[in-house]
Design a protein around this nucleic acid. Structure first.
Lengths: 136, 136
DNA sequence: TTACCTGCAAACCGTTTGCCTAGCA
DNA sequence: TGCTAGGCAAACGGTTTGCAGGTAA
């Protein structure tokens, strides 16, 4: 028998600092990058604390975890519905604001149902401006 | 200046065995699972060999690597164009045969262009039959 | 005063690499 | 004979965990 763990959150200055780092549009730092930022304010902070806090914050629905295949996850403090595009050269992630309702466009009813489909994950790929403009 | 490395492949029974494992429809094993299969035939085979071979085969365009967020990659020997759905309970991956042209449905022209978009990755999520039917 | 939260270090897991031998072409 | 592929073990990168002390409520 599984017993739901009761979980209460309490304030911590470190978690506030993580939130503050993520309070910026079109910014999708990795844990390491968040760590470096938070360290400026709390030199003693540990990497594990950052990991624990981003996990908690994303479970609380306050931030969004962006899974990156073959690389560190990135986090996004902007909870408005949008998508992401990743530069296949430098790895940077940018916001994609799709005009229209993606749920209408990807009509799950058109897909064969041996599963009950609960969602989808879509991620765009491309080359960003700064990589495009680089001579090499 | 970057010099393209010249690469020639040569036959190996281990790589044949990996291909043989993947020659089955709607089967998406991890490296560990492939390893276990190949070991039945070649007890001495090493995990590194499986990794090197799946990497090579997918570069040769003979198999497809399915990136799984937070988990081991899976491989698919079926190169016909299709999509995947992953059970969020048990992690199993199944094929999704989408009726229609996904490229028409996801019209990249509708998306703002600060990037040059080269592609997208879409992965469905759901609960598979066997997980649905499990009492718990 | 209770439990959550922290810092530290060690462990973890999937994957890659260095080294040296085996074996295809 | 030259160069790719293999086996083994160690290293790697991102992430999680155990523990003991710190701190919010």
């Amino acid at each position: 028998m599984i017993v739901e763990a009761k979980m209460t959150y309490r304030f911590s200055k470190q978690r506030e600092a993580v939130m503050a780092v993520l309070d910026k549009k079109n910014y999708h730092p990795t844990v390491d990058e968040i760590y470096d930022m938070v360290k400026k304010q709390y030199a003693q902070v540990s990497l594990a604390t950052i990991y624990r806090n981003v996990e908690q914050l994303s479970q609380m629905g306050k931030i969004w975890k962006i899974e990156i295949p073959e690389g560190p996850a990135r986090y996004d403090g902007n909870m408005e519905k949008h998508y992401h595009i990743r530069c296949t050269k430098c790895g940077n992630v940018n916001d994609v604001w799709f005009k229209g309702n993606m749920n209408k466009i990807i009509n799950l009813k058109n897909i064969e149902k041996k599963f009950s489909i609960t969602g989808y994950r879509i991620e765009f790929e491309g080359i960003c401006d700064s990589c495009n403009n680089k001579t090499h």
